[in-house]
């Protein structure tokens, strides 16, 4: 075929937003009993070099014959060429994914979603609060801030898990405690190993150990089970953080990732294109963001 005079981006010419590209799993290991870690890269080298994303975005992962579902990205765009994500065994697709080994291929499309507003967060203090699986998307932000450390102010990472065995990236985060350029606080609800050397109690307990906060200059980013938002968000408001600087990232059922299938709708917004990152103000004025009852009775 003759080449056109104007070089067109291939993605724009044959634009099918639903077509997955083939990616190869290059690394895989268990993080906990029911969560696996995956590192993948596009089969095509050119795709690998082109692929770019923002912390807080997600991809749609497919297994031919099993289907497709959204997964948040756990890696940072500051380490390009590959993607990392966590998969918890919960349904038929994730059970199959859980068994997929290195060198096998998967369908991947994306990245999708708004991601964290990095342009607004630059220069600010960053406080990251992760509960359980919430660490998966927040690790992307944490690594991104660490990789661009001079661009941000004080960095605090709070992470709570039920037990030491259920803490995602446990060894990695324990190593971070050695670093002097961030304050990394880890806690478990219950230590069933008798070997846990760090704190015990729910994640909100960690706020006592954070030290003074320059609240107007801080962005807090929260991700965890719905019940966690109920306690953490009002706490951050009491600490004096502006509501639009309290961010959260949401989970919803999605079939397209591009604002068409309707499943992730919340009032007039779609979690997939208008989210998954929302602010606490969104939570207060849109009633169904973190589930029934959460914001119904909260006035301030």
């Amino acid at each position: 075929m003759k080449k056109l005079c104007v070089v067109l981006d291939e993605r724009e010419v044959q634009d099918n937003p639903y077509r997955p590209d083939m990616w190869r799993i290059v690394r895989r290991y268990p993080l906990t009993n029911d969560v696996n870690f995956y590192q993948a890269r596009p089969v095509e080298m050119e795709e690998a070099l082109k692929f770019n994303y923002k912390p807080g975005q997600f991809v749609m992962v497919s297994i031919p014959g099993e289907g497709e579902a959204p997964f948040s990205i756990s890696s940072t765009p500051s380490r390009p060429g590959m993607l990392e994500f966590c998969i918890r065994k919960t349904g038929s697709l994730t059970e199959t994914l859980f068994e997929v080994k290195e060198n096998h291929t998967l369908g991947v499309r994306g990245p999708y979603g708004n991601g964290f507003p990095m342009d607004k967060m630059v220069g600010k203090d960053i406080m990251i609060i992760a509960g359980g699986l919430g660490a998966a998307p927040l690790r992307s932000l944490l690594l991104y801030v660490l990789d661009n450390r001079d661009q941000f102010g004080k960095l605090t990472y709070l992470h709570g898990a039920r037990t030491p065995g259920e803490m995602l990236f446990r060894e990695e985060f324990i190593q971070l405690k050695e670093r002097e350029d961030l304050n990394c606080l880890l806690t478990v609800d219950k230590d069933d190993t008798d070997k846990w050397q760090f704190r015990q109690g729910v994640v909100t307990e960690l706020f006592k150990h954070v030290g003074p906060i320059d609240s107007k200059n801080t962005f807090a980013v929260v991700c965890g089970p719905p019940v966690m938002y109920r306690f953490v968000m009002p706490h951050l408001v009491r600490l004096g953080l502006p509501k639009h600087q309290i961010l959260m990232t949401l989970e919803r059922r999605m079939k397209c990732g591009v604002g068409k299938c309707g499943h992730c709708a919340i009032e007039y917004l779609y979690t997939c294109i208008d989210g998954p990152v929302f602010t606490y103000w969104d939570v207060l004025h849109m009633k169904e963001i973190i589930g029934r009852g959460v914001s119904d009775k909260t006035v301030a």
């Binding site: 497919s62 031919p64 014959g65 099993e66 289907g67 497709e68 079939k255 397209c256 068409k260 299938c261 309707g262 499943h263």
Partner: peptide
């Protein structure tokens, strides 16, 4: 109303099919 669902239908012994 535009909402839709997507499934993979398996044919010919799981290696081929349609979305």
């Amino acid at each position: 109303c535009n909402c839709y669902n997507v499934v993979d239908e398996v044919e010919l012994g799981a290696l081929e099919g349609t979305r």
